Amino acid sequence: MKFSSFVIAAAAVASSIATPVNVTEGFGELLARGGTPSSTGTSNGYYYSWWTDGAAQATYTNGGGGQYSLNWSGNNGNLVGGKGWNPGSASRTINYSGTYQPNGNSYLSIYGWTRSPLIEYYIVESYGSYNPSSAATRKGTVSCDGASYDILTTWRYNAPSIDGTQTFQQFWSVRNPKKSPGGSISGSVNVACHFNAWRNLGMSLGTQHNYQIVATEGYQSSGSATINVA
Rank of each mutant, 00 (worst) to 15 (best):
S173V: 00
N71K: 15
I119G: 03
T165S: 15
K179H: 13
D145Q: 12
S89L: 10
Y111P: 01
G112C: 11
N131I: 05
V174F: 00
Y149G: 00
R138I: 11
Y127M: 08
T165G: 10
F168C: 07
N75P: 09
R115I: 03
K139L: 08
G164V: 04
S69N: 13
S143H: 09
W85N: 09
T153P: 06
Q169R: 15
P160G: 12
L70N: 02
Y130P: 08
N95L: 11
N71V: 15
L79K: 07
G66M: 04
T114A: 05
G84A: 10
R175K: 15
T153G: 04
R92Y: 08
G146K: 11
S116Y: 09
S173N: 07
N103W: 03
N176Q: 15
E125V: 02
G63P: 06
G81K: 02
S134F: 04
I110K: 00
Y130K: 13
L79A: 07
W172Q: 02
Y149K: 05
L108C: 07
P117K: 10
A90F: 14
S173E: 01
V80K: 01
P132Q: 10
E120H: 06
S173A: 15
S133T: 14
A90D: 14
S89I: 06
E125F: 01
R115K: 14
V124C: 02
N62E: 11
V80H: 01
V142G: 02
A147Y: 05
N176K: 15
G164T: 06
P117C: 10
S161I: 07
N158V: 03
W72D: 05
G81S: 06
N131C: 10
F168Q: 01
A135I: 09
P177N: 11
R175C: 02
N71Q: 15
I162Y: 01
W72N: 03
P87Y: 09
I119A: 04
S133R: 14
I123L: 06
R92I: 08
K178S: 10
Y122N: 03
S148N: 15
N75T: 09
S91G: 05
L70C: 07
I94E: 00
N176D: 15
K179P: 03
N86L: 13
G82F: 02
Y68N: 11
N103E: 12
L152C: 05
W172A: 01
G66Y: 02
T165R: 14
I162G: 01
R175E: 00
D163S: 14
Y96T: 07
Q101P: 02
L118F: 05
Y127W: 15
R138A: 14
L70A: 11
I94Q: 00
S73N: 15
T114V: 04
T93Q: 12
Q166K: 15
G74C: 09
N105S: 14
Y122K: 07
R156L: 10
K178A: 15
T141Y: 12
I119T: 01
T137H: 08
P87R: 11
S69Y: 06
I151S: 02
I119C: 04
N105D: 14
T137K: 13
D145E: 12
T93L: 12
S116V: 07
R156A: 06
N95P: 07
W155L: 13
D163R: 13
T99Q: 13
S91D: 13
S73P: 09
N105W: 05
Q170H: 07
A135W: 06
F171T: 03
N176E: 10
S134H: 08
P177F: 08
I110A: 03
G98L: 02
